[in-house]
Design a binder for these strands. Sequence first.
RNA 1: AAGGUAAAUCGAAUAGUUGCCCUGACAGCAAUGUUGGGGAGGAAAGUCCGGACAUCUACCCGUCACUCACGAGUGACAGGUAAAUUGGUAGCGGGUAACGCCCGUCUGGAGUGAUCCACGAGGUGCGAGCAGAGACGCUUUGAAUAGAAAUGUUCAAAGGUUCCAUGCAAAUGGAAUAAUCUUCGAUAUAAGCUUAGGGUUUACCCUGAGCGAAGUUGAAGGGUGAAACGGCUAAAUCCUUACCUAGAUGCAAGGUCGUGUUCUGUGUUUUACGUAAAUACAGAAAGUGCCGCUCGAGGCUAUUAGUAAUAAUAGUCCCAGAUAAAUAACUAUUUCUGUCUGCCGAUGAGGCAGGCUCGACAGAAUCCGGCUUAUAGAUUUACCUUGAUA
RNA 2: GGAGAGGUGGCUGAGUGGUCGAAAGCGGCACACUGCUAACGUGUUAACCUUUAACCGGGUUCCAGGGUUCAAAUCCCUGCCUCUCCG
Length: 113
Amino acid sequence: MLALENRLVAGRDFNAVYKCGRFFSFENIVLKVAKNGLETTRVGFSVGLKFSPRAVERNQVKRWLREIVKKHLGEMKKGFDVIVMPKKEATFPVRQKLEQNLLSAILRGNLLI
RNA sequence: AAGGUAAAUCGAAUAGUUGCCCUGACAGCAAUGUUGGGGAGGAAAGUCCGGACAUCUACCCGUCACUCACGAGUGACAGGUAAAUUGGUAGCGGGUAACGCCCGUCUGGAGUGAUCCACGAGGUGCGAGCAGAGACGCUUUGAAUAGAAAUGUUCAAAGGUUCCAUGCAAAUGGAAUAAUCUUCGAUAUAAGCUUAGGGUUUACCCUGAGCGAAGUUGAAGGGUGAAACGGCUAAAUCCUUACCUAGAUGCAAGGUCGUGUUCUGUGUUUUACGUAAAUACAGAAAGUGCCGCUCGAGGCUAUUAGUAAUAAUAGUCCCAGAUAAAUAACUAUUUCUGUCUGCCGAUGAGGCAGGCUCGACAGAAUCCGGCUUAUAGAUUUACCUUGAUA
RNA sequence: GGAGAGGUGGCUGAGUGGUCGAAAGCGGCACACUGCUAACGUGUUAACCUUUAACCGGGUUCCAGGGUUCAAAUCCCUGCCUCUCCG
């Protein structure tokens, strides 16, 4: 689990990022990025009912994504709000694949230092 | 030993590292830090029933305060109840806060058996079904139409009992009748089957008590013929009975100290008199903090009552409360599933070693009692059937 | 989280035990009209399986499965899916 200061929590902030953020994607990972004018980077996760109707699978994917983001948070630029959204695929994703794709998406967004 | 039935329990484990949510203690002015404790399920699911709890509606009773023309009225607080329609359940008895749930038992059905079952009030009506030549959605006739035909569809006419009501009448509407017995045959036994007879109803004929001026009047009786005379089945069509439940809405109920935004309305002030600005109050929208919120019809153990469901008593324990939503990730070992290789064995069953892969169904959201549905596998207990041994 | 409504031809949508494979509209196809097209008008048209050279014929199907009934789109139970409302 991420620390509280690195979490995107408020619905207001989410709406702002959805509206004004820039769009990046790699395979089954979608990013929305916007500057927030703060010292830290805040990350939110959006896994909808369309991804999987089962609550267990949605929670599982969210946990994996959180762990991956936590692992690589030090390598990312500061002062951004990011929303991570996985896209539905035919088969349930594997963790290593998810990590590669997320890193590639972050690279496209020029968020790495 | 093999196969089965029922009930119950578990549903990966251990260690290390890195994190998250709630919370106690200590240090600190505070931010925060140190340290201790706890952190998903049997279904958390479906939302199919039942409650608790909360607010609102109506009514009743009580207490207090105020008003009064002494009849009463108004307000506050606390408690209780919920007309009718609708709805549900259904052998009998019990349990429960309550239930459509659970337990016991009776009857019926399935099974060799342990056991299992969404079988269980009554029905004279409506509408159906079985059997039958025939049960009115019928029978007969005619016409039209579809078809090669069998046959079907539509329309019209006629036919076969009684009573009541309305109407001058044609007619319309409603309600019903009620009875079977003996015997021969048949059959595994029987029957709504079959033979004969009696009785009942009805039609015709004969006779003609009575009444009348007059008969198309006709009691009782006799003869001949005819007869749908018998009342089976279901109740998740419908009706009745008994019992139960039922005011409405649901924690997004509801409450509250606040807090800023935006909009609308009203009032006041200022003046550049404009549809401006400031300010106060009220309302609305979206957002947000706290309470409700987890100690409960609670778990565990023991005893007592009871066949049991369950209840009572005593002891003991505190066991998730998140809100873009915690309960996790990684590594190692073990276990488990599948598969591959090698060895033992007989090429089978099985066992040993090693490699790889996967980890049943599934994630709390106010809380409980049930039901239903999903679920790899493991364990325990009791019982049944078959076989073997003693 | 809680409360409710629905699922019927290609689409919309009526049908609450028998006359129903099923009203009506849109759509499709054919005919007619026109020099040609559109509109109007008339007729026709569900899908799948089986059989056939083809038509005809037979069977199954009203979200899925099970039950009640002589008979189910309709009544009862379970599941799946879709939609609406509640701060």
